[in-house]
Computed example of a mutant assay.
Amino acid sequence: MSNSVALEPPDVTRAAGHVDVNSLQVVPVRHWGRMISAAVLIAIVAFCVYGFVVNPNIEWSVVGDFLLDGGVLKGLLLTLEMTVLGVGIAVILAVVIGVMRISESRILSGFASIWIFFFRGIPLVVLLIFVGNLGLFVNTVSIANPFGTAPLVSFQVQQVVTPFVASVIALALTGSGYMAEIVRAGLLSVGVGQHEAAKALGVNGGKTLRYIVLPQALRIIIPPLGNELIGGLKASAIVSVIAGGDLMTAVLGISGVNFRTIEMLIVATIWYLLVIILLSIGQYFLERRAATK
Rank of each mutant, 00 (worst) to 15 (best):
E263G: 10
T13S: 13
I143T: 07
F66H: 08
T249V: 02
L252D: 14
S240H: 13
S154V: 07
I107W: 11
L68R: 08
I129S: 14
V275D: 13
I254G: 01
V95A: 03
A90Y: 04
A166H: 05
V190F: 11
V257C: 00
F147M: 05
V12M: 09
A198D: 03
G148L: 02
V190R: 11
E228Y: 04
E263T: 10
L279W: 07
A172G: 07
I92K: 12
V91N: 04
F66W: 11
A172I: 03
A112V: 09
V96M: 09
S142D: 01
Q194H: 14
V96S: 03
I262H: 13
A200V: 07
V53N: 10
G202Q: 02
S255I: 07
I220D: 14
V168Y: 13
A200K: 03
R289T: 11
F285T: 12
M179V: 12
T13E: 14
G206Q: 06
M82E: 10
L85G: 10
L278P: 01
P215Q: 00
I116R: 06
V141N: 00
F119C: 01
V72Q: 03
I89Y: 01
R289I: 11
G191Y: 02
L73I: 07
L77Y: 15
G70E: 06
V168G: 11
Q156K: 13
A268I: 09
V63K: 12
A185Y: 11
H18Q: 13
G244H: 06
V54I: 13
P10W: 09
I238F: 07
V160H: 00
V157G: 01
I262N: 14
V183E: 01
Y272I: 02
L77Q: 12
L279T: 08
G88F: 09
L279Y: 07
V54M: 07
V190M: 05
E263V: 11
K199I: 02
N22F: 14
V62P: 08
V239H: 14
A6N: 15
S37A: 15
A185P: 05
I116S: 09
S167M: 04
W115L: 03
G231H: 01
T13N: 10
L7R: 02
A172M: 05
